[in-house]
Amino acid sequence: MCLAVPAKIIETDGQQAIVEIGGLRKQASIVLLPEAVTGDYVLLHAGFAISMIDKKEALETLLLFEELAPPGGRPGLSGPGPEDGDLGLKETPAADDE
């Protein structure tokens, strides 16, 4: 029901932030997500960050899809990401956290 997109926080200034979505920058409010800091990925809804995106959970979900869907179809994770060309998911399993 509610459109929300993953956005990266580029800078914050009090309750305001600049976020980036696919190379596009927009003003957003982080008043509903005070813990958000620069570099975080958040879900953006109607100009507000409403939730943190959890990287480990995201990777686990992707790994689960891969497990349930072993290679054979079109490769799922080889497309270029927004910042680097190689997601390298298999080489760096989620367990190797920072």
Partner: peptide, 26 residues
């Protein structure tokens, strides 16, 4: 150091390979 892959949290979830397999499972 962060050695996790960079994600856009969108494109990776749009791959068609897993979709077909998940559908097969259904």
């Amino acid at each position: 150091m962060n050695n996790l892959p960079v994600l856009s949290y969108l494109d990776e979830f749009r791959a068609s390979g897993p979709a077909g397999r998940l559908l097969d499972r259904l």
